[in-house]
Design a protein around this nucleic acid. Structure first.
Lengths: 222, 222
DNA sequence: GTCTATACCGAGATAGAC
DNA sequence: GTCTATCTCGGTATAGAC
């Protein structure tokens, strides 16, 4: 049994513990996780059977349990891999020390930028979050969410204090709307489509900061 | 067997056929649908068992099948009830003959306005759409989605033609982002919270049309 | 590391009495 | 309109041979 179990850690998400144990065994495991992620994204976590995952991997369902001790463990790895990467990127953006508007733009770009490499994980998170959060082992999802929220809200407030952003909007509410707009895009975003992630990001940044209306501001309430 | 089956119709969604057949039998059925909707929203469609629905209704699972011929039929009724109402409201807004910006604002208000009365249905649609769309019987979901998209995109294009909206944004993409922002709000929206649906709508309309930035436009690309 | 075989359970649904 | 009883299926997971 090569199975790695979920456990606490000092970072925001618990997974990828023992990831240092590389080699071909680890690559095999990673391959299975990626494969499963695609099926989870396509059919939903609960509708995906371990038999299905095994079949697509060219083995039988019993053999999957040599690598993972449960279906939950697989999806756990899918989600935590994504969150680890996302949070690391956000931290880097925050450490640039740029002004709030610049940092916020960069965070928007980071978000849309994950659509391609983490499409499956984001889809699973969007569709199955509500179900998975019921289980203790996925408590870290909420923790990671809180940490990310703090990063965004802090920047929005800083931008308001610096006079870059209008002060008649609610920081937390604004963050939620930005967040939702980015991640939900995974539902219709298709790699190779009319717009790439970078194009989506610039489009959204334009509307977010300057608005859809032409000409003068209709309500400069600030 | 009082069960009503799904069938085609001239409107966008098929359900609520025979809804005229009112009386206490129909009320009982409606009550069961509303009850089921809440559980679907809380636990997800697949994770909800017919036993659970029956228990919360104070009956046994076998008795449920006197009212519905399958679990799918129940969720079908949940979703089509919502879509029928939504599309009817949109149509009314379009028929007002107002300018695009006014109509679009009204459509945003309509969207947020459904959060409270249709919270459960919207939650189910957000979380289980991907799963349900696999089945033929839910093809009408996609049809309804297309009809709604047409309504929005037409208004956005009209606004651009009239000079109300900037022309350097993509109408379809802009629609998707607006749509996503509205519906995903059910994930965190709680009736009785800090902001009511009307407040959310006005907040969003402000940012959507005028942007988050203060002062002059940074990029008036149009 | 994969296979065969199977245990075990809980799901949706049905039949017929009341 | 509800209950009792039960069928059937397909899911996750396990044990041990190879």
């Amino acid at each position: 049994m090569t199975t790695r179990k979920s456990s606490g850690s000092t970072t925001a998400t618990p997974a990828k513990r023992q990831r240092a144990t590389s080699g071909s065994a680890s690559e095999r495991r990673d391959h299975l996780v990626k494969l499963a992620a695609e099926i989870f994204a396509r059919k939903g976590f609960q509708a995906t059977t371990v038999r299905e995952i095994a079949t697509e991997a060219g083995i039988l369902s019993g053999s999957l349990y040599h690598h993972f001790d449960s279906k939950e463990t697989i999806v756990d790895e899918v989600l935590s891999t994504f969150l680890d990467d996302l949070i690391a990127r956000y931290r880097a953006a925050l450490e640039s020390g740029s002004d709030p508007r610049t940092v916020l733009s960069e965070m928007v770009r980071i978000g849309f930028g994950t659509l391609e490499p983490h499409r499956a994980a984001i889809t699973v998170m969007q569709n199955d979050w509500n179900y998975l959060r019921q289980f203790e082992r996925f408590n870290y999802l909420v923790k990671a969410e809180d940490e990310v929220e703090q990063m965004w809200v802090t920047q929005i407030k800083a931008g308001q204090a610096a006079g870059q952003f209008r002060t008649d909007v609610d920081p937390k509410l604004t963050y939620r709307m930005i967040r939702d707009t980015i991640w939900v895009a995974v539902r219709w975003f298709r790699p190779g489509g009319r717009l790439n992630p970078a194009g989506l990001a610039e489009h959204y940044i334009t509307v977010l900061f300057d608005g859809l209306a032409t000409g003068e501001r209709t309500s400069q309430r600030a």
